[in-house]
Write a protein that binds this DNA or RNA. Structure first.
Length: 817
RNA sequence: GCUCGGGUGGCGAAAUGGGCAGACGCAGGGGACUUAAAAUCCCCGGGGGGAAACCCCAUGCGGGUUCAAAUCCCGCCCCGAGCACCA
C-alpha cells in the first residue's frame, strides 16, 4: 500500500484542513435551529501590534480544546472570537508610533486573525466583532442610555490622577510611587466631573449570586476575589453630637460598635463636609494648611499604608453617646471620604491604625476588651482586635460579655436610644466610566442650557467618533473631542436649541461588559441582541479566561447583565454559568511580557513544528488551570507522539487490521484511556489526558497492535488537541465525514478493570514484596500467599504477627513488634 | 500587613475520601541500525551503602496522629498572584 509510506507534513495537512473547514462552513453552527446549542466562550483579545504570544495561545487553545470536545459529544458548538480594540493601550501605542489608531487597529486585527486561524481554533468567523466598529459601539452607547434612563448613570466630581507631562488622566495602576509610570513626573490630583454607574446598588445581589450553584459554577479563586472586592461588612452607623452645637451631628461607620466605650476621639476625612462648620477659629489655619497639603498628593500615595500617620485637631469635641464624655475631633488622611461616612470613631485600644495615631499624638487609650490574663486596668501595648475571645470591660452594663455578643447588644442599645443603627457597608465603589481620551465610544449625551443633560435618542445612534488628526490629550483635562468644533456643537434633541456634546468617551470595560451578548446577533443591525438567539444560546455554559479579569471585567459583565435583566431585556441575571480561570505561561521564571523580554512568538514554532504539535505541547506542559513553564526543548515530545500515531494509522490502513484480535492488556488499556481522557477533558486536566493517550500509544506499540477500531478512537481522542492532524488521520482510516462530526468514544466499565491486581505486601508499613493475584481472590488466600513471599518471610522470621491490615486489591500489612 | 495559590528527580510534572512516590514527557547515559551523522528503535536512570542478594535515606523545615503520611493536624521557612490605612 503506497500511501502507508506518506510522511506526516504538518504544513500540508494544516493548510488543507483550514481551507476545507472554511469551504464546508464546518465551524458555523445554525444559530436559529441548533437542537443542542453550546456557547463556548473565551475572553477576546486586545489586538496589540506585537501579535499573539504563546501565553495568549495557551489560553485560546485550552478553550478551543474544550469546545471541540463538547462538539464531539454531540453539542452544536458556537465558538466566536472578536477584538477588544478600543482603549488607552491602542491610543498610547498609536501616539508613540505617530499613527492614527484607526489605521493601526485594522492592521493588528488582520495579523491576529491570521494567527488565530493558524492555530486551528474552531472559530465562527462569521460572527466575529470589533468593539471599535460603529455597528458594535452603537449598542455600547445604547447600553449607556439604558442605564441613564433607569437612573443608574450619574455625574459627580471625582478625584483622578493627572500627569502634567503626558497631559492625561492615569489609572491608579499607572502610578508608581507617586510618579507616572511612563514619564516619571510626579502625578497630581485633579477633581473632574465624571460619569458613574451605580454598581453599588447591585452589591448585595452580585455577592449573593456567587453562592448560588443554580446560577454560577465558577473557579473558587475567582469567586473569592469577587467577594473580597465587593467587601461586605456589618457594623453600625453611630451619630455623635457636636459639643455646644444643636444643629449638627456626625455619623460614623464602625464594624466594632462593641468598642464604643473605648472611642476616645473622632477622625474625619480631610474632605469631610462638616469640617468647615466645626473647625474653631484657633484651629482654622492648621486645618486649612493640612487640607491643602493633602490635596496635592496623588491618590495612590494617599492610600498606600505603612507610612507615618498625620492629622490635625479641629478644635471641636463630640459627645461619646455611651460614656457621655466629650472627645476631640481630628482630621487625618488615613480616613477616606469615599468609604462609610467619611468619619470614624477612633478606638485606639482595639484598632491598630487608631492605636498608632493615638500614640503619635498622645491621645488617650482605653481598654474595653480583656482576655483571661488581663484586667480592666492592664495597659494596652498593642491594639487588641480579637472579636471572638476576651470579655468586655470598662463598658458599663455590657461588662463581661464576649465582644461578638456585645456588638449585637450595643447596636440594639444605640437603636433604642436613637443614637444610631445597624448598618452594612461595601468596599465596592461606583464604576467610573468616563475617560478624557479619544479612542473610545463617545458617551451619548448632549448638554443643553435649557434642558440639561439630554440623552441622544436611540434612532440617532451611533454617535460616531470623529476621525480627527490631533487626538493627543492636552493640559485642559478635557477630552480631545472638545477641540473638534463641528462635532462638539450639536442641537439639543429635546428643544432643538444649541447644545454641546459630552466629550468624554466610555471605559473599555464597558465595551467588554456585553460582547458575549452580541456575538450570536452580529447579523442584526436593528437590535443589540436578538431575543430568540439569546434565549437559545445564553447564559453561557462555559467561559474560560484569565484571572487578571477576576474582578473588573467579570463583575462589570455581571452587573450589566443584571441591569438588562431588570429592564426585561434578558431572561437571566447571571451571564456565565460556568467560569474557569486558566493559568499563566512562565518563561525563564517570569510571566511573559514585552518589558521582561521573554515573549515567545508562536509563528516560528508553527512553521517549524506545526500548529497541532504546538497546541499539544502547550496543553501538555502543565495543568491548564495553573499554567506552566515554556521550554523550547520540550516540544519534541508531543511531536514524536503525533508521529507515532501517524505510524499506527498507516499500519491500520491495512485491511487485515479491521476487526483484528485485540490483546486483553490492550483492550483494558484502551477502555481505561477512554474513561480517563473523557473525565480529564471535562475537568480541563489536559496534561494528564495527553499523558493517558501517550500511554495508550505505548501499549499499542508494545503489543504490535494497530487494530482499526482502536486506532480510530485514538485519533478521535487526539482530535481536540491536534485538530488538523486528526482530520487527516481520520480520512486516511477511511472515514468520510469530519472527525468533529463523529461521536466521542464510549468506554465499557466492565473492561476498565484488569483481571489481576498487584498486592503490595508490607511488614510494619515497609514494602517487602508484592504478588499478583486474581482480582477476585479471597482474603485468606491472599494473606497466606503474602506470608510466603521471600522478602516477607525474612522480615517475619522469629516475630509474632500482632495484627494484619488488609486492603482488598491493594495491600497486606503485617504488624509485628 | 491581609487573602489565595504553590514548594515532589537534572527539568516540566503525576499520584491527595492516607495504601508500591516519581505515571507521561524533556534533557542525559549506554546499545542497535549507518561508511558516518541526523532520524528511528531498544535498554538505564532520586540519593547513599554493597560484589551481589539486599539494606538505609528521601516529596521545603521541625513536631504530631496512624499499621501506613507527598496526602491529615500543629508550628515555621521560601516562592508566586491579588488586595492594600475599607474603620
Amino acid at each position: 500500500m503506497s500511501n502507508a509510506r506518506i510522511e506526516y507534513d504538518p504544513s500540508v495537512v494544516e493548510a488543507k484542513w483550514r481551507a476545507r473547514w472554511q469551504v464546508l462552513r464546518t465551524n458555523e453552527p445554525d444559530l436559529d435551529h441548533a437542537p443542542r446549542p453550546f456557547y463556548n466562550l473565551m475572553m477576546f483579545p486586545y489586538p496589540s501590534a506585537e501579535g499573539l504570544h504563546v501565553g495568549n495561545l495557551f489560553a485560546f487553545t485550552g478553550a478551543d480544546v474544550f469546545g471541540r470536545f463538547k462538539r464531539m459529544q454531540g453539542w452544536n458548538v458556537f465558538e466566536p472570537i472578536g477584538f477588544d480594540a478600543f482603549g488607552i493601550h491602542s491610543e498610547n501605542f498609536a501616539l508613540r508610533m505617530g499613527m492614527h489608531p484607526a489605521e493601526l487597529i485594522p492592521r493588528n486585527i488582520a495579523n491576529f486573525t491570521r494567527q488565530l486561524s493558524g492555530m486551528g481554533g474552531m472559530f465562527a468567523w462569521d460572527h466575529s466583532l470589533s468593539t471599535t466598529d460603529p455597528r458594535y459601539y452603537k449598542w455600547t452607547q445604547w447600553i449607556f442610555l439604558q442605564l441613564f434612563q433607569r437612573g443608574l448613570a450619574y455625574k459627580k466630581k471625582g478625584a483622578v490622577n493627572w500627569c502634567p507631562t503626558d497631559k492625561t488622566v492615569l489609572a491608579n495602576e499607572q502610578v508608581i510611587a507617586g510618579a507616572c509610570e511612563r514619564c516619571g513626573s510626579m502625578v497630581e490630583l485633579r477633581v473632574l466631573e465624571q460619569w458613574y454607574f451605580r454598581i453599588t446598588d447591585y452589591a448585595e445581589r452580585l455577592l449573593r449570586n456567587l453562592d448560588d450553584p443554580a446560577k454560577m459554577d465558577w473557579s473558587a479563586s475567582t469567586v473569592l476575589a469577587q467577594k473580597n472586592w465587593i467587601g461586605r461588612s456589618e457594623g453600625a452607623e453611630i451619630r455623635f453630637r457636636v459639643a455646644g452645637r444643636d444643629d449638627i451631628t456626625i455619623p460614623v461607620y464602625t464594624t466594632r460598635p462593641d468598642t464604643l466605650f473605648g472611642a476616645t476621639f473622632l477622625v474625619l476625612a480631610p474632605e469631610h463636609p462638616s469640617v468647615d462648620s466645626i473647625t474653631s477659629s484657633s484651629a482654622r489655619a492648621s486645618v486649612e494648611g493640612y487640607r491643602a497639603e493633602v490635596s496635592t498628593r496623588d491618590l495612590v500615595s494617599r492610600k498606600v499604608g505603612d507610612k507615618e500617620k498625620s492629622g490635625v485637631f479641629v478644635g471641636a469635641h463630640v459627645v461619646n453617646p455611651a460614656t457621655g464624655r466629650e472627645i476631640p475631633v481630628w482630621i487625618a488622611d488615613y480616613v477616606l471620604m469615599d468609604y462609610g461616612t467619611g468619619a470614624i470613631m477612633a478606638v485606639p485600644g482595639h484598632d491598630e491604625r487608631d492605636f498608632i495615631f493615638a500614640a503619635r499624638f498622645g491621645l488617650p487609650i482605653v481598654r474595653v476588651v480583656a482576655n483571661e490574663h488581663e484586667t480592666a486596668d492592664t495597659p494596652i501595648e498593642v491594639a487588641y482586635v480579637d472579636l471572638e475571645h476576651g470579655r468586655m470591660v470598662n463598658s458599663g452594663v455590657f461588662d463581661g460579655m464576649v465582644p461578638v455578643d456585645a456588638k449585637r447588644s450595643i447596636t440594639q442599645w444605640l437603636e433604642a436610644q436613637d443614637h444610631g443603627a445597624g448598618s452594612v457597608q461595601y468596599r465596592l465603589y461606583d464604576w467610573c466610566i468616563s475617560r478624557q481620551r479619544y479612542w473610545g465610544p463617545p458617551i451619548p449625551i448632549i448638554y443643553c442650557d435649557q434642558c440639561g443633560p439630554v440623552p441622544v435618542p436611540e434612532d440617532q445612534l451611533p454617535v460616531l467618533l470623529p476621525p480627527i488628526e490631533d487626538f493627543r490629550p492636552d493640559d485642559s483635562g478635557v477630552s480631545p473631542l472638545a477641540r473638534h468644533a463641528a462635532w462638539y456643537h450639536a442641537p439639543c434633541p429635546r428643544c432643538g436649541g444649541p447644545g454641546r456634546r459630552e466629550t468624554d468617551v466610555s471605559d473599555t470595560f464597558l465595551d467588554s461588559a456585553w460582547y458575549f451578548l452580541r456575538y450570536p446577533s452580529t447579523d442584526f443591525d436593528d437590535r443589540p441582541f436578538d431575543a430568540d438567539r439569546t434565549r437559545r444560546w445564553l447564559p453561557v455554559p462555559s467561559y474560560i479566561g484569565g484571572n487578571e479579569h477576576a474582578v473588573l471585567h467579570l463583575l462589570y459583565a455581571r452587573f450589566i447583565t443584571m441591569v438588562l435583566h431588570d429592564a426585561g431585556l434578558l431572561p437571566f441575571e447571571e451571564p456565565f454559568r460556568r467560569f474557569r480561570a486558566h493559568g499563566l505561561i512562565i518563561k525563564d521564571g517570569a510571566k511573559m511580557s514585552k518589558s521582561k523580554g521573554n515573549v515567545v512568538n508562536p509563528d516560528d514554532y508553527i512553521v517549524r513544528w506545526g500548529a497541532d504539535t504546538l497546541r499539544t505541547y502547550l496543553m501538555f506542559l502543565g495543568p491548564y488551570q495553573e499554567g506552566g513553564d515554556f521550554r523550547d526543548a520540550g516540544i519534541s515530545g508531543p511531536r514524536r507522539f503525533l508521529d507515532r500515531i501517524w505510524e499506527l494509522v498507516s499500519a491500520a490502513m491495512d485491511p487485515d487490521c479491521r476487526d483484528a484480535e485485540i490483546h486483553r492488556d490492550v483492550l483494558i488499556k484502551w477502555h481505561q484511556t477512554k474513561e480517563r481522557v473523557t473525565a480529564d477533558l471535562e475537568s480541563l486536566h489536559y496534561n494528564t489526558a495527553i499523558a493517558a493517550l501517550m500511554g495508550l500509544v505505548n501499549a499499542l506499540r508494545e503489543q504490535n497492535c494497530s487494530e482499526h477500531g482502536v486506532v480510530s478512537e485514538l485519533v478521535q481522542m487526539t482530535a481536540p488537541f491536534a485538530p488538523h492532524f486528526a482530520e487527516e488521520c481520520w480520512g486516511r482510516l477511511g472515514h468520510a465525514a469530519s472527525v468533529f462530526d463523529s461521536a466521542w468514544p464510549a468506554h465499557d466499565d466492565a473492561l476498565t478493570v484488569s483481571d489481576d491486581v498487584t498486592i503490595v505486601v508490607q511488614v510494619n508499613g515497609k514494602v517487602r514484596g508484592n504478588l499478583i493475584v486474581a482480582r477476585s481472590a479471597d482474603e485468606a488466600v491472599v494473606r497466606r500467599m503474602a506470608q510466603q513471599e521471600d522478602g516477607v518471610r525474612r522480615h517475619l522470621a522469629g516475630k509474632t504477627i500482632r495484627r494484619t491490615v488488609y486492603v482488598p486489591g491493594r495491600l497486606v500489612n503485617f504488624v509485628v513488634h
